[in-house]
């Protein structure tokens, strides 16, 4: 996630360097370079994930899920520190301008134009993911492999290819998340992925592991309850709220709200 956000920063500065005009789109605070950087960062992050999978996880796949998890945590620390090594721990800015929220006449709420853009991008990503999982051959194979890896293999499905695609898509989505957070907050830090880790786990458990739609709904619930909680308790405890919801969920319905298996 941080990696994606930072790659976007790199691409952004590269593109600006290439002289692509940075005139902001209409009311938005950024322009064409940001949009191009978004796609470049997504692709590069996906590529990085595939490379890590080929070098590292492929060889550890047989050893069991926990060893894989340890390797992944180790990798996360490495990536985070590579970012820190190059850019330092202090926040990096995409755009320095401050945007003022405007009132939407009919709904009576105040919202920044950038935020509308973020909502649209998220909606597009959700629709895209849905289309991919339901309509494409690879998406269906991904669901099949998640149901039963062994059967997928004996049906002739190239499970290694499926795993590579899964990594690529997961990494690209994480990168997109990181960039969007960066657009909303205006800055990115190497440990932003870590900050989000707990809420993300909580959202996935809430929705039921293995259920992408549950995860989306879980994400909404966790995100909203975190924000609402700041009305009652200190903002510092936002991540704790996610955790508490998750613990309650584990006790009453460990398979998640929409879990089926």
């Amino acid at each position: 996630m941080s990696l994606g956000a930072f790659l976007a920063l790199v691409s952004l500065s590269l593109l600006r360097g290439l002289g692509i005009p940075d005139s902001p789109f209409g009311p938005l605070s950024f322009g064409l370079p940001m949009v191009l950087a978004f796609f470049i960062a997504l692709s590069l992050t996906a590529l990085a994930a595939i490379i890590i999978d080929r070098i590292l996880y492929l060889r550890l796949r047989r050893t069991g899920p926990i060893i894989l998890l340890i390797a992944a945590v180790g990798m996360a620390f490495c990536l985070r520190n590579i970012i820190q090594f190059i850019w330092g721990p202090q926040p990096q800015y995409y755009i320095k301008a401050i945007q003022i929220a405007r009132k939407i006449p009919l709904l009576g709420i105040r919202i920044k134009p950038d935020e509308i853009f973020i909502i649209i991008v998220v909606a597009l990503l959700v629709i895209g993911l849905h289309f991919f999982l339901q309509k494409t051959k690879m998406g269906k194979a991904m669901r099949a492999a998640s149901d039963n890896m062994e059967l997928a293999r004996v049906s002739g499905i190239d499970t290694e290819k499926v795993i590579m695609w899964t990594w690529a898509i997961a990494a690209a989505l994480a990168a997109a998340g990181g960039i969007l957070v960066g657009i909303e907050d205006k800055f990115i830090t190497p440990d932003m992925g870590w900050q989000m880790l707990l809420p993300i786990f909580a959202a996935v458990i809430l929705g039921g592991i293995g259920n992408p739609y549950g995860a989306m709904a879980g994400g909404m619930i966790i995100g909203l309850s975190g924000e609402i909680s700041t009305a009652f308790i200190s903002t510092a405890y936002k991540p704790a709220v996610a955790f508490i919801i998750m613990v309650i969920m584990l006790i009453i319905k460990p398979r998640g709200l929409f879990g089926t298996r």
């Binding site: 269906k140 669901r143 099949a144 149901d147 039963n148 059967l151 049906s155 002739g156 499905i157």
Partner: peptide, 29 residues
């Protein structure tokens, strides 16, 4: 499998969260 031998295991021999048609499609992957 590619050479033309297909196999139906005794248990766990379907993809439960896929539709019938998607199961067949996976067979033809």
């Amino acid at each position: 499998v590619r050479r033309g031998i297909c196999y139906v295991p005794q248990t766990d021999n379907v993809f439960p969260s896929l539709t019938v048609e998607e199961n067949l499609e996976m067979g033809a992957f």
